[in-house]
Simulated assay, not measured.
Amino acid sequence: MKHAAGLLGFIARFAILGLALAFVVSLLWPTSGEHLRERFGLASTTPSSLPVTTTGAAGPTLSYADAVARAAPSVVNIYANKTVTEQALRMYTDPLMQRLFGGMPAGPAYKRREQSLGSGVIVNADGYVLTNNHVIANADDIQVLLYDGRVAQAKIVGADQETDLAVLKIDANNLPVAHFQPHASVRPGDVVLAIGNPFGLNQTVTMGIVSAIGRQLSSSSPEDFIQTDAAINLGNSGGALIDARGNLVGINTLLIGKAANAEGIGFAIPMDSAKKVLDQIIDTGHVVRGWLGADYAFVPVAADSGLPAAARGVQVSDVYPGGPAASAGIQPHDILLRIGDDDIADPADLRRHEAALKPGSKVDVSGLRNGAPFRLSVTIAQRPSVLPDSSSLDG
């Protein structure tokens, strides 16, 4: 019995000594445990939830510096100068007269120079630059500041008011071109970075996510937008919206600011749309879109509409006199469900479909009129740059 008790005491003292020695070693050499586990091939005890820095296409990342370094050289600053003619006014001293008649001309009109700040993206090694139409509208002199400090004179190749896009051309060598895939998709929640020239600060990067896709800001427009909460400020217009790998996914165009009690609501033109505009402007100097000659609204679902509860399609709200839809016999309140071989999801979807059709081509449109099916053939016209006054519509 004494022998057993002595043995247990010896083991206990040895264990205590070993633990004390291990404690001292861990204080002097904190990574010794990890080295021993690696030496004997044991699994690491590092929690798997800790963030890991990676430069791969998948997985989390702690820095977007590589993405910015890849995309930033193709982003340029645009300085658009124009001459503005103004008339000096002499105001009435009487407040009532001011309210009734405003001011009186005082002397000859005078001219002054006005400069618009914006951004652009080099999308072609031949010197083509994408920017916003509102940045360069009415400009008589456009200067482009490149990433490497060079300054180039730009000329306007063409512009498209529908998408607020414009194409410029500069003559320069060794131009860095943006990386983009026109059909690459972005999803709500994807990280995006906006690069541009806000308030003339040059090459500023802001980060956010894709808030939504397919946004339509005008019911009569065929285009859709990427909505993002990445900060887009004055001067960012025409700049790059890139993904976490540095690929160009959109052209920044506008924001809804604090004046509208909004924060973090900006919009960019998807590269799929921008590439179509770019190619047409380079080829012909302008953009051609198909047009049905009607306005649409969402389908009202009622108990007696004859439509299923999850109805898709559009309801014709107005028809332009003399337009393709009127000539084909489409009437206000018709429900359009299909164009060509494609189902119609909603008004924005139909706008995109008709815009992609070639003027002069024929397309079958089918739907319901007072609950009864109908099918008509429509000859597509070219969408006018300025739509007729809505007061002239039937219905």
Rank of each mutant, 00 (worst) to 15 (best):
G371H: 08
I339D: 01
G323M: 09
N261H: 13
V301Y: 00
H286D: 12
K358E: 15
S273P: 00
A356H: 01
T284L: 02
Q331E: 14
I265W: 02
A311W: 02
V277E: 02
I339W: 02
I265R: 02
K362C: 04
A259T: 13
L336A: 06
A348P: 06
A311E: 03
S361D: 14
D279I: 05
G293C: 06
V301R: 04
D341W: 02
D346T: 09
E354W: 05
P359I: 13
G290Q: 04
G340W: 12
A355Y: 05
G323V: 09
I265H: 03
N370E: 14
S273E: 14
S366V: 10
S366H: 06
V319I: 15
G323D: 09
V277N: 01
H286T: 14
D279W: 04
N252Y: 10
P324W: 04
N252H: 10
G285F: 12
P300T: 10
A309P: 01
A294N: 03
D346R: 07
R312H: 12
A355M: 08
R289W: 09
A355H: 03
S273T: 15
P300N: 09
P332D: 06
A297T: 13
S317C: 00
I265G: 03
I282Q: 04
L350G: 06
A262P: 03
G293S: 07
I269G: 05
Y320N: 04
R369G: 08
A356R: 12
I282F: 08
L292G: 14
S366Q: 13
K275F: 11
D318A: 13
L254T: 12
V365Q: 03
K258F: 12
P321N: 12
G264R: 07
V363Y: 05
D346V: 10
G290E: 04
P359K: 09
D279Q: 09
Q280V: 03
D349Q: 02
Q315F: 05
G323N: 05
G306F: 09
A274N: 06
D272I: 11
A372W: 00
L307K: 02
L278V: 09
F374Y: 14
Y320L: 14
S366A: 15
V299H: 03
L307W: 05
F267A: 08
I344P: 03
G329Q: 10
N252C: 08
G322R: 12
D272S: 15
L350M: 14
L350H: 05
D346A: 11
P300D: 07
A325Q: 09
V287E: 01
S317I: 00
D364S: 14
A303W: 07
D343I: 07
R352I: 02
N370P: 00
